[in-house]
Amino acid sequence: MPYVRHWLRNSVLLFATAIVLGLIAAHTQLIQPHDLDLDRTIQTNTRTGWLNTTMKLVSYCASPVAGVIILAVWCGWLLFLRRRPITACATFLVVAVGWNSTQIAKAIVARNRPPREFSLDPEIGSNSFPSGHTAFTVAVAVAVYFLFRNSRHRRTVAVLGVLAVLLVAFSRMYIGAHYPTDTFGSVLVAGSAIFFVTGVWHAWLLPNLDRLPLLHRFGLEEERAELEAAQGHGYGAPVPGPGRRRTGAAPASGGGRHRRR
């Protein structure tokens, strides 16, 4: 997981921006009519039988049930098969926190969903802003990019991640579950949560992973040694371990180099 400078400030600013946007959209007429018009334009001009099925499938792939399964399988593979507990913990935190941060924003904004008569798949929950499906996709895309950020595939991964987020966001508007500002707001909320996670990870969580005895069984020291060896060849700054002081440079996790931004 890379180190982000001014992570707390960036996190608060992004979250505040998202909340202001949500409150304006939910409780004034500045955005709401335009949101509804765009939703209806998408639904009127693009809905057809095969695309209805496809968009429902896309939406299901980012649903809460699918999200839990994807996260469990992914982190389980990293922990049990790849034996990379640091990477598994970092990935879990990025996805879980980035995804579930939407619940805080939903409670604050309390925006009603689009009219149910236009929905292909009515939602159980009533709070519309922001989109949890889109936030999950954002968090997954960022977590995957973190894993590939030092490889030659990082640009491809970034492009595919953006396309995945756009596809899920479109599917949520297409089936009538969200407004456009809901999907945009989810990018802001998930982004703010991920900024926060990167800061907490380097300030407190990563140096204290050694306090979890279970992780030692899955290769904690081995992965830490690999990271330190890679950093010794110019791929990053030291990873703090037990009884070890952090240097002025920021620590890295998940392998490879990280750069202060």
Rank of each mutant, 00 (worst) to 15 (best):
R84V: 06
T198R: 11
F196H: 01
V157M: 10
P251R: 13
R211L: 14
V189R: 01
R113C: 02
Q43L: 02
A249Q: 12
I24A: 14
N150C: 13
S131Q: 10
W50Y: 11
H258D: 14
G76W: 05
R116K: 03
L93W: 07
L71N: 09
A110G: 05
P122D: 09
V140D: 02
L188K: 04
S171M: 00
L21P: 05
G234E: 07
W201Y: 08
P242C: 00
S253H: 06
C61K: 06
I124G: 04
R244N: 01
I19K: 08
V4M: 04
A66L: 09
R155V: 12
I194L: 10
R116C: 00
S131A: 13
I70T: 14
L51A: 06
T102Q: 07
V68C: 00
F170V: 00
I108Q: 08
A26Y: 07
T48C: 14
G185K: 09
A193T: 13
V162M: 08
R172H: 02
R260L: 09
D182Y: 03
F129W: 01
T44A: 13
F170P: 00
R116N: 02
P238W: 10
P207T: 04
V68W: 01
L166G: 14
P180L: 03
L160S: 06
M173L: 13
A143I: 02
R40T: 08
S119V: 03
L163V: 15
L205T: 14
G254S: 13
L188A: 12
V142T: 01
R154H: 13
L160C: 09
A139K: 07
N52S: 15
L71E: 11
E226V: 09
L209W: 15
A66G: 00
L220S: 07
F80G: 09
G232I: 02
A18N: 07
K106P: 01
Y174H: 08
A135C: 10
I86C: 09
I86F: 04
P122H: 11
A25N: 04
S171A: 06
N150S: 15
P251G: 15
A164G: 11
I175P: 00
T137S: 11
V162K: 05
L79Y: 05
G256W: 09
F15W: 08
R9E: 07
L163M: 11
A18D: 06
F146W: 01
S126H: 14
R83G: 04
S119W: 03
A229L: 12
L13N: 01
H202W: 05
F118Q: 04
S128E: 03
V142M: 00
A158E: 02
L79E: 03
Q43D: 07
P115A: 08
P85L: 10
V12F: 12
R84N: 14
R9F: 10
A193S: 11
A66E: 03
R261N: 11
R5Q: 12
I108G: 10
A141S: 15
L212M: 15
F129G: 02
V65N: 10
I24T: 14
C75M: 07
G236Y: 05
V200D: 03
F184I: 12
T41C: 02
T87C: 12
S192M: 05
L120S: 06
L209E: 15
K106I: 05
H178K: 08
D182I: 07
L79N: 06
N112D: 14
L23E: 13
I42L: 14
K106M: 04
A105L: 03
L81C: 05
Y60F: 12
Q103K: 12
R40M: 14
T87A: 15
S11G: 12
R245H: 13
A105W: 09
G132N: 11
V97G: 02
